[in-house]
Simulated scan of single mutants.
Amino acid sequence: MKKVVVLSESGELKKTFLSLENHYICEVITFNYEQSHVFETLLSDDESLVLLSIANWENFKNFFDVHRMKINGTVVLVGDNESLNSSALKKLCEVDRFLKGVINTSLDFDMNRPWFNLLINPQVSSIDQEDLEEVGENLERVLGTALNELKRLKEVHEKLVPIREEKFKGLSATSKFGAGESAGGEFFDILSNDREVLLLLARSRSYLVSSMIMSGFDELRSAKHFSDELVNNFLSKVQSDVDSSKVNESKRKLDILFLRVDLKTMKARTWKSGDSILLNDSQLVSESEFTIERGEKLMILSSGLVENQPGKTELVSKSVEKRSKSCRDILDEVFYTLKREKNGMFFSHDATMIIFEVDKNAILQI
């Protein structure tokens, strides 16, 4: 609800502006200039409308000079014909862009309505009820159609692309993704050449940040070797781009996992920031370098996945419990666990799980 803060010399404007509550969705608070120290929080509210009486110019000016920088709301001066006919006021309006307007109380109150229509939200009751009901019905129909279409597309997507499978020399990658409601989201991709496989799993809180990561990752596709230097340069550039962007500070957080696997030795190297979880042969991976043995699975649970209910502990436990099953069965079990806790059409957060499995008969270089 909009707050209208009225300051005057001795409450002379109280009766004038209290009637605003009858016409607008607002709360009118009136007090004298000498009481302003008690109501400083109201003055600092950037959503408030602050009406300042200039009936006594000296008292107004003393108050305004002291509190000007503390007022974050919209400031409008109020006076009658006599007080508005002032060279000091004209000068102030010329030089101070902090002021947004002047209201003349000598005019009939309704003559100032355009000001308040602009500065305060009009009451819903002033809108024709039949028109309002018709708009509501139309919105219901549009929203219902959109949600049904979205649900249908989701169902089609899950049927057509339930699980993604990729084969490399001696190594397979099986993955599943579930969409969440939060902004930004997760995405992953796998690049490969004759010698190596490179996985990027990333999560951001902003679509702009996501586009920065994907753009940079596309540049890696032409690389003949996924060296440490190449990955480190990528990470540095992405962080620099994010830091220099106009993305809100709260949305700059990045969860990034790079995993490189040497197809000749199955030695893996990771670069990790964030809360994704790696389980190698069901053991939590804490080192940046390790080996995936023949017949073993490396399970990767994204940070978004483990933030969904029923939570990290149960999801990790379920993954370990089903480790002897096929990769597809493990994914189905974990996502079934997620779906049991899902309240709506989507998960709370994007959820990704990827399982790498080394072939039992893979010929490895020692």
Rank of each mutant, 00 (worst) to 15 (best):
Glu307Leu: 10
Ser204Lys: 01
Gly274Glu: 05
Thr337Tyr: 00
Gly185Ile: 05
Ser250Thr: 13
Asn104Cys: 09
Phe63Gln: 00
Val197Tyr: 02
Ser211Thr: 09
Ala146Asn: 15
Leu119Met: 13
Val66Met: 11
Leu84Trp: 01
Asn117Ser: 08
Lys3Val: 10
Lys100Gln: 07
Ser83Ala: 06
Tyr24Arg: 02
Lys2Met: 08
Asn121Cys: 10
Asn121Trp: 08
Leu254Asn: 05
Lys2Ile: 07
Val76Cys: 06
Phe116Val: 11
Ser215Cys: 14
Gln239Met: 10
Gly274Cys: 09
Leu18Met: 10
Leu278Ser: 04
Ile366Asn: 15
Leu20Ile: 13
Gly178His: 03
Leu49Cys: 01
Glu249Ala: 08
Lys2Val: 07
Gly304His: 01
Gly216Ala: 10
Asn148Ala: 15
Asp80Phe: 03
Val38Ser: 06
Glu149Lys: 14
Ser10Phe: 00
Leu208Met: 13
Lys3Ile: 11
Asn138Arg: 15
Lys91Asp: 14
Thr105Glu: 04
Val28Lys: 00
Asn232Met: 11
Val102Cys: 03
Ile54Thr: 00
Glu137Ala: 15
Ser192Leu: 08
Ala88Cys: 09
Gln365Phe: 13
Glu34Met: 11
Glu296Ser: 13
Val156Ile: 15
Glu21Asn: 05
His23Glu: 14
Lys322Asp: 04
Gly185Pro: 08
Phe168Gln: 12
Ala268Glu: 01
Asn121Leu: 14
Ile190Val: 13
Ile29His: 06
Thr16Ala: 13
Pro162Ala: 13
Glu130Trp: 00
Asp241Gly: 04
Leu89Lys: 01
Glu314Val: 10
Ser236Thr: 13
Leu278Pro: 01
Asp189Leu: 07
Lys3Asn: 10
Leu20Glu: 06
Thr352Asp: 08
Glu357Ile: 03
Glu12Gly: 06
Val197Lys: 00
Asp45Arg: 07
Tyr24Trp: 08
Thr145His: 11
Gly304Thr: 05
Arg260Pro: 03
Thr337Met: 09
Phe64Arg: 02
Tyr207Thr: 12
Val102Ser: 07
Ile354Leu: 12
Glu134Ala: 12
Thr270Cys: 01
Glu229Arg: 05
Leu284Pro: 06
Ser36Asn: 09
Leu160Gln: 12
Ser273Tyr: 03
Gly295Arg: 04
Glu137Ile: 15
His349Gln: 13
Leu13Trp: 02
Phe177Val: 06
Asn22Pro: 00
Glu321Trp: 06
Arg323Ile: 11
